[in-house]
């Protein structure tokens, strides 16, 4: 193995950072619109944007999984212990799962809501509500969506923390090979 491992392929790097931005925006908007916006009109608009953003997060995650399945990523840094490799792999898997679960529970709460208001997509399209309206079910999905979003936030924070650790403590290239910048 060479001292400098290959970067991730460009599609993965693009999708990674787009996903990161969309997830941070969706989580931030989710907290903001639920906790800090008190007027109905403002809340209505932000909820619709959050739903569209959630659809983007889901689409990006699916695209990433497809690219991940079709391509091979760089090897682990040699210095990384087996335990840390296992931990990183587990967090990555859990991140994918929590992204998909947060999007799916969000869709389920929208779809089962007694308020017929589908997720709007660009171009005037919308995601059809395939689940029957059921207020009690939508309240349960709402709770599940919150739980998944908290898990996603925690995992994303752990993931970003680990990347920072690699960069400044291990001083390896785990972070830079997901980037586009100049590498030593």
């Amino acid at each position: 193995m060479t001292a400098r491992s290959a970067r991730w392929n460009v599609a993965t790097r693009l999708l990674h950072w787009l996903s990161a931005a969309a997830i941070v925006a969706a989580l931030g908007l989710g907290v903001w619109m639920v906790r800090f916006v008190d007027d109905a009109a403002g809340k209505f608009d932000l909820y619709q944007r959050h739903k569209t953003l959630g659809a983007a997060v889901f689409a990006l995650a699916v695209a990433r999984l497809l690219v991940r399945a079709a391509t091979r990523g760089p090897d682990w840094p040699e210095a990384m212990s087996r335990a840390r490799r296992a931990a990183a792999g587990a967090v990555h898997g859990a991140l994918y799962a929590s992204i998909l679960a947060t999007a799916a529970t969000g869709y389920a709460m929208v779809s089962t809501s007694p308020i017929p208001l589908p997720v709007a997509l660009p171009g005037g399209l919308s995601v059809p509500n395939l689940l029957a309206p059921d207020f009690a079910a939508s309240e349960r999905w709402k709770f599940a969506h919150l739980a998944c979003a908290i898990a996603l936030g925690a995992l994303a924070a752990a993931h970003a923390g680990a990347a920072t650790w690699h960069r400044f403590v291990d001083r390896d290239d785990v972070l830079s090979r997901m980037g586009f910048g100049w590498r030593a």
Binding site: D39, A40, A41, G42, F44, D45, Q48, P116, L117
Partner: peptide, 15 residues
């Protein structure tokens, strides 16, 4: 008029 054009549009629908 509830203060948001998109909310208004939604209230105008058959829902």
């Amino acid at each position: 008029d509830v203060g948001s054009p998109s909310f208004d549009d939604y209230l105008r629908t058959d829902a």
